[in-house]
Design a binder for these strands. Structure first.
Lengths: 337, 337
DNA sequence: TTGTAAGCGTTATCAT
DNA sequence: ATGATAACGCTTACAA
């Protein structure tokens, strides 16, 4: 009603006084506890209304020893990781779940030395009630830190080293195997792969899926280059691959960004896709639909990953003991194969 | 050192006791205030070290009346807006600035009814020391709310209605005009435009730039369809455009996502780009590089927008009175024109 | 059902 | 320089 910009905000004491009750009663009414009489409660609510009272979250947090927030921690080489629309989806998924609670989402990029330090502080000071971590490298000190910080932690994708009790992942091995088997079913035999970073579980798992499929099919052809999931790295890796293995007739890229990069290289090299070289990616990002030709890819339910990570964290905070989750992937065939 | 998971954390009182000083002295040493003797300070720091003390941010926040966090509020139709890599860049920019402070970043999606309510509460309860708002629609109630909440607020892009004192924007009119003039310089005369949402400033501004260029060049051709900055909407809009104005020879799309969609439609319709139809976008997102042909686009320094918004907010919080900022754009010519 | 009083862990004030 | 003492605004035993 009135301009609240300059007005000092009323406290619960003032509400209580106005309602003619004790502060305790006011608090009870505010948090609709059972043990308040009808009339007192109404008096309090009226006073709250009249005074425009809003509770002070910080004071409440101090009293209840709950921060009222959870953090999403994104590790990685540099802040540019966020350019990958992947994270936007995860965040969106997390948000929709948090909306139903009274928890806020704190976003932390642990992508620089300074950022790592800040995350460390976040954990040590227990400034949040729980954390979700993504994109940890094999030797990321954050893994151990998160596990010993005494704060509920769930991981998005298993870290490479160290067993973590709570995580949400997709079956990367199976997905990659299916993509490779699909390429094989299209009659390809000289199938190469563009791997992700081999110091991450996801990078290794997708490579393993490729190898499994090749082995199971009795194919002995092997050709690989690794990248870091960016399109740029896909370009470099594909160039190297083409130089070293000019006879390849198919490529399984560990994600869509790298596949998009590979596509450009193949294009420039005059290799028709899929006629000369069949190409499959992983993720099911928007980019896979807009390339020419659109990419066959292994779709993973990214939004769900964010949702499920958050649900798991909430369960953990509530004192439950949720089981790790492995979400399914689905092969989406498009014109690149 | 010890497993802190179960151990109760020491308080400042305990530090003081251990150091044999008053809590006041301990507090002073902790925040390295000037008025502490050398030996007392050292004793305190030693005690802090030995006890593994970390200050409680909530208690500090209550005492100092500062939340220790700022919020980035993203409005929009649905949570899918985050799929746009645009926001990832803004977030990355904001993070790099916040890393140098002791402020956390709270991310809020005001994309659902529930989300709007939560943002409202965030503002009313003053749970953060300042807010940055993006993607507000013309009639977005958040605009007024943010301005009257008594919390420092900076806007990313001017809201359509209502003058806001603090914002970071790019010169959308000029950028769009340059893109259109570029198309004209390539000999095109029947230039159409795919606009953004016309209830946003950015949507209208880019349309205006198009109109200005056409008028200045004495071109009377007019053709437009509007979308919502998604690739999907670009497809629909381009289809409509092509149906109604089959004679067009160039298109200025209000952003790269829509341009990418338009490209697909043109492709399917057998219109060669740029031979038959020249196509330009806006943003300079990664997508503009990977289409075939790559897109001519108006590049805006997205990362900087996040950085500058944050800097402006910090200045505001510090009690300064920063000036609004309009960042420059640059035309990047690629093969689509 | 009600209220008193004791926290929660800091910082800020004000004498000394 | 120093240290009581009082905020900060809420929750929660505990007693009545």
């Amino acid at each position: 009603m009135t301009d609240e910009a300059t007005h000092r905000r009323p406290t619960l004491d003032e509400v209580a006084e106005r309602a003619g009750v004790s502060r305790t009663a006011a608090s009870r009414a505010l948090n609709n506890a059972p043990n308040v009489s009808r009339d007192k409660r109404e008096a309090v609510l009226r006073a709250i209304e009249e005074l425009g009272y809003v509770p002070n979250p910080t004071a409440r947090a101090l009293a209840t020893q709950q921060a009222g927030a959870v953090a999403l921690i994104i590790s990685g080489e540099d802040p540019a990781v966020l350019a990958d629309p992947f994270y936007g989806q995860v965040i969106a998924g997390a948000s929709t779940v948090l909306e139903e609670t009274d928890l806020h989402l704190v976003l932390c990029l642990a992508t620089s030395a300074r950022g790592q330090v800040r995350v460390k502080q976040l954990l040590r000071t227990r400034a949040v009630d729980g954390v979700m971590l993504m994109s940890l490298r094999g030797d990321d000190p954050l893994t151990r830190l998160a596990l010993t910080a005494g704060v509920p932690a769930v991981f998005g994708g298993k870290p490479l080293h160290g067993d973590v009790p709570y995580y949400v992942d997709v079956d990367n091995v199976l997905g990659a195997r299916q993509a490779t088997e699909h390429l094989i079913s299209r009659g390809r035999t000289r199938i190469a792969t563009l791997t992700g970073p081999l110091d991450t579980d996801v990078g290794r798992a997708r490579r393993r899926g490729y190898l499994e499929a090749m082995t199971l099919a009795g194919l002995h052809y092997r050709a690989e280059e690794s990248g870091d999931f960016t399109e740029r790295s896909g370009i470099a890796a594909m160039e190297a691959l083409l130089a070293r293995h000019p006879d390849l007739d198919a490529v399984f890229a560990a994600n869509d960004n790298m596949a998009a990069g590979a596509l450009r290289v193949l294009d420039r090299a005059g290799r028709a896709v899929p006629a000369d070289v069949a190409l499959a990616g992983f993720d099911g990002l928007a980019v896979s639909e807009i390339t020419e030709p659109p990419l066959t890819t292994v779709h993973q339910p990214i939004r769900n990953i964010g949702r499920e990570m958050t649900r798991m964290l909430l369960a953990l905070i509530a004192g439950e003991n949720p089981s790790p989750l492995v979400l399914p992937t689905t092969l989406v065939q498009r014109d690149s194969t």
